[in-house]
């Protein structure tokens, strides 16, 4: 098994790049999953109305990507992540309002995808996803949308999702909010992980009978050989167009595309390690 990934992101229009509060793992363009170990990727979306949410989103995707929790292990992994977040953000004196805001904690939507290698002699393997909130996974086989998870229609999005809190008191109802899904993958299957604004656009387009994945594929440099800078520029122009037309809510946007292959991996591409195509910190803000 090997997996080609490409992550694109942009802050909300009017915000600086360092105010982006989504996060993704891995960042930029890369290849992973070589060998028998499971491949993991994730996105998270820090809630605007909370502070230090980008750090929290980054902590969640980083821990998932490093295998510190899986679809079942999220609640158990949180105490250590919460302590680390508190140590990171509470290290310096803050003005009264920042202190009070910090007391409520940060919140983030989270979506993680695990692809398991095929069993010996098999041409495909299993995928498993875990989600809290409104970041969505779309599984594609060729031109067929296999499924959308955890939300399946644009009207299911609201501005008040239940999210993962960095303070234990905020997670009283977390267990009931963790969604899980799974299935079998075949070589060439694609997975799109999208934060809420883009996911909502995707679902609205599919309801109209369109194939929104065509546009998303065209934005990935792996697909057409465009270099990272061109891909960033193309993504920014495409997002601005959708926002200008009123088809995409003005919010941070993150797109992570993963294409899984069962065949033996070809020779490594020039950039084997994941890199940030934007040349800046790729996750969190």
């Amino acid at each position: 098994m090997w997996v080609l990934t490409d992550a694109r992101w942009l802050p909300k229009a009017g915000n600086a790049r360092d105010e982006y509060e989504d996060a993704c793992w891995p960042a930029g363009v890369g290849r992973g999953g070589d060998g028998r170990a499971p491949f993991r990727c994730a996105i998270a979306d820090g809630a605007t109305e909370t502070s230090f949410a980008g750090c929290w989103a980054e902590a969640l995707v980083g821990a998932f990507g490093a295998g510190r929790f899986d679809a079942e292990g999220l609640p158990g992994a949180l105490p250590a992540l919460q302590r680390a977040w508190r140590d990171r953000v509470g290290a310096r004196p803050l003005p009264w309002y920042a202190e009070e805001k910090l007391r409520s904690g940060a919140f983030a939507a989270f979506l993680g995808l695990t692809l398991s290698a095929p069993a010996p002699g098999e041409a495909g393997g299993a995928w498993e996803a875990v989600a809290v909130g409104d970041s969505c996974l779309f599984a594609l086989r060729g031109e067929r949308l296999l499924g959308a998870f955890p939300l399946a229609a644009p009207e299911e999005f609201d501005r008040r999702p239940t999210l993962i809190a960095s303070e234990p008191a905020g997670n009283g109802a977390l267990a009931a909010s963790i969604e899980r899904a799974g299935g079998a993958w075949e070589g060439g299957d694609e997975f799109f992980l999208l934060t809420d604004a883009l996911a909502r656009w995707f679902l609205a387009a599919t309801e109209l009978g369109d194939a929104p994945w065509t546009a998303l594929r065209a934005l990935t440099p792996g697909a057409d050989g465009a270099d990272a800078a061109e891909a960033d520029e193309g993504f920014a122009g495409w997002v601005a167009g959708l926002r200008g037309a009123g088809d995409l809510r003005n919010d941070d946007v993150t797109l992570l595309r993963a294409v899984v292959h069962a065949d033996p991996a070809p020779a490594p591409a020039a950039a084997e390690d994941h890199c940030d195509a934007g040349g800046e910190p790729p996750a969190g803000g």
Partner: peptide, 11 residues
């Protein structure tokens, strides 16, 4: 008033 996502579990 909406200035961005407000978690349902934020109190």
């Amino acid at each position: 008033l909406d200035i961005g996502t407000r978690p349902n579990n934020l109190r």
